[in-house]
Structure formats: structure tokens, C-alpha cells
Computed example of a mutant assay.
Amino acid sequence: MYEKFLELPEEKQDKIRNAGMEYFGKYGYKKANTQDIADKAGISKGLLFYYFKNKESFYRYLCEFCETIMRKSICYEEFSNIHDFFELFDYGVKVKLELISQYPHIYEFSLMMFLSSQKEDTASSQFVNEMMDTSFEVYFKHMDVSLFKEEIDPKQIYRMMLWMSEGYILEKQRTGSSLSFEEMVEDFNVWKEMFKKISYREEYL
């Protein structure tokens, strides 16, 4: 589906990917302007749509690409040895930090991708929602559920943390503030400790 794009030199591909992540990450799927993306990438809008059928096709490609590189970036030997739910979240942050050097806007794009999927009724949104549903089983299959209180559902805690990320984005949009990965990580660590106290048995705190 993206054969012509994948024939480009890797450096050119990354320039187009980064432009897309920047504008979709800043404005969301609906408000991002493909002409702005093309200008940032140093190509014409017509050429962008030569590589990708339309805006939605390009957006979906970026969603798939981010999911793929996240999985490829995970060291499965290291990952499979982590059994603490919250340490797995920390590992995910570490992976994103390593990817930021090559894809500076991947974090903002990932957050906005989740938010847009809740608002838009498109094939891409359905794809993202399905991806989010399966991500729990993929990334948390090695966790030790015995650490949790009997009445706590780990998947529900996962969803609540995603909802908090959504609220974080909405608050930044409301106040006109830019997204900061470093600031988000600081806030995330506070949330993590709060959820850990709510979720874990006393002897594991």
C-alpha cells in the first residue's frame, strides 16, 4: 500500500514521517493541514498524496509505523523479565525517550493519536482503538497480577492512566500550552505512585 514511499531513501522517509508526527501531534487528525505537512517535509502536497492515497491513509501509516518501531525498540529479554505493572510503564517511557532522538514528535503524536481516536469516527480511529485494546495483552502479559489487591482490575487501571493522559492533552490545548515530554514524565511519576497505592497490596508498597 505504501510501496512508492518505502522506495525513498530512509532519510527522506524520516523527514516526511517527522513532519506528519509534528503536525498531527500538535493539531490532531482533524485540524492538521496536509499542505503544512508537505511544506515541512519539503515536498508538494501532490507528491504526499502520490505516496499516500489521502490524509487518512498517511495518518494510518504513521499510527502503524509508531506501533511497529515501539515493538522493535523493545528488548524482549529485558522486557519479559519485568513483572511489576508500573515498572512496565517506566520501561515504555524509556523506550520512547530513546526514540525521540530520531523522531522528536513521536510522544506528542502518540498522545494525540489516542485522543483523536476518541473523537473521530474513521477507519484510522477504529484501527487505533483496536490497537489500544490489544496493547494491554501485548505489553502486560508478563506482569505479576498477585501484586494487586483482589478487587482491582489491572486493565481498568491501565485505562484510567490513558484517560489521565487524555485529560493532560485537553488541559494543554485549553490553556494553549505546548506538550512537554519531560513535564509529562514528572506528572506521570506522581500519578504512578497514586495508582500504585490504590492498586497494590500493602506488603508490596
Score class of each variant (00 low, 15 high):
Glu64Ile: 06
Asp187Met: 08
His83Leu: 06
Val190Ser: 14
Cys66Gln: 15
Met70Gln: 10
His105Arg: 03
Thr68Val: 04
Thr34Arg: 10
Lys94Glu: 15
Lys141Pro: 01
Asp144Phe: 01
Ser110His: 11
Cys66Ala: 14
Ser146Lys: 10
Gln118Pro: 02
Arg17Lys: 09
Lys12Pro: 08
Phe24Gly: 01
Ser116Arg: 03
Asn81Phe: 03
Asn18Cys: 06
Arg174Ser: 14
Met164Trp: 12
Ser135Asp: 10
Arg201Cys: 00
Ser180Gly: 00
Asp36Ala: 06
Met113Thr: 11
Ala38Val: 14
His83Pro: 06
Gln35His: 11
Tyr27Leu: 04
Trp191Cys: 01
Met164Ile: 14
Arg71Ala: 03
Ala123His: 11
Glu77Ile: 00
Asp121Tyr: 12
Leu6Cys: 04
Lys4Gly: 05
Tyr29Trp: 07
Asp14Phe: 12
Phe89Gln: 10
Ile152Cys: 02
Val185Ala: 03
Ile157Gln: 05
Ile69Ala: 00
Asp153Asn: 13
Phe5Ala: 06
Gly176Lys: 07
Phe85Gln: 01
Cys75Gly: 11
Glu64Met: 04
Leu115Cys: 09
Phe24Asp: 09
Glu67Lys: 00
Lys40Tyr: 08
Ser117Pro: 08
Ile69Pro: 03
Val138Tyr: 14
Asn81Cys: 07
Asn18Tyr: 08
Asn33Thr: 10
Asn189Trp: 10
Phe148Lys: 01
Lys12Ile: 15
Trp163Pro: 00
